[in-house]
Nucleic acid binder design. Sequence first.
RNA 1: GUUUGAAGUGGUAACU
Length: 273
Amino acid sequence: VFLWTALIRGYIFNGPISEAKVLYSCMRRQGVKPSSFTFCALFKACTSMGDLSLGCQLHGQMFKFSGFDSDLFLHAGNALIDLYVKSGVLKSARMVFDEMPVKDFISGTSLIVAYAKNGDMEVARELFDDLEVKDAVVWTAMITSYSQNARPKEALELFERMQCFGIKVDEFTLAGVISACAQLGTTKYALCIRDITERSGHGPERNVVIGSALVDMYAKCGRLNDAYEIFNVMRERNVYTYSSLILGLAIHGRAVDALQLFYEMEKTDIRPN
RNA sequence: GUUUGAAGUGGUAACU
């Protein structure tokens, strides 16, 4: 079973992936019992091929070989959840998750993001609260989910808790939090988050995402001079950066400046969308 | 005294 699984993985890595399926059939014909490692590899193959129905078949077969240690089943379960989430069958993904004796934040994060994208923040939050161990990724996923669902207060509330727990904040977290501050449109949070950003070492000079988010935030707060200041220190800019500042100028009655900036953008190789 | 094989990698910015 070790060799068969290794071979299947080889085909997933180097292709053609469809060979993984053939190998599994051969393996079964020879009476070799697949392990949790085998299923893990196969689910991964299904995900890259977009073959949901094969995944379902294998899911059924996996029950016949129960008796995997629960900590080994974790990996296969996560791979299966990944397949279901990416195939858009959230219900099946959730079923697998609920039936896993040992869960972790890897598939937990996938599910939280999937529910949040459906606008189901209550379920997402429930999953989040139920996770016994949380890392920076799942904290960030939950915070940006609130942010993306136009619930900035909850995003900031959670961010505060994250800091209390001493979880390390990175540029992904900051992007979501800055967006939340922009939605509130008040200077109160803006200055505080600016400070946190500076201290984090992910300043606008080097990071175009953080820079654009800050430009947007200041623009929404009506602090256009600060927005310009950020814009000017940025080494790299993109269509988000320009759009954020143009919009900020436009909604604060500075139409001429907005157009002026648009003409400047046209001189660069950044194309308007 | 030391050392041995295959597995899940999820979260980021504007407008609409």
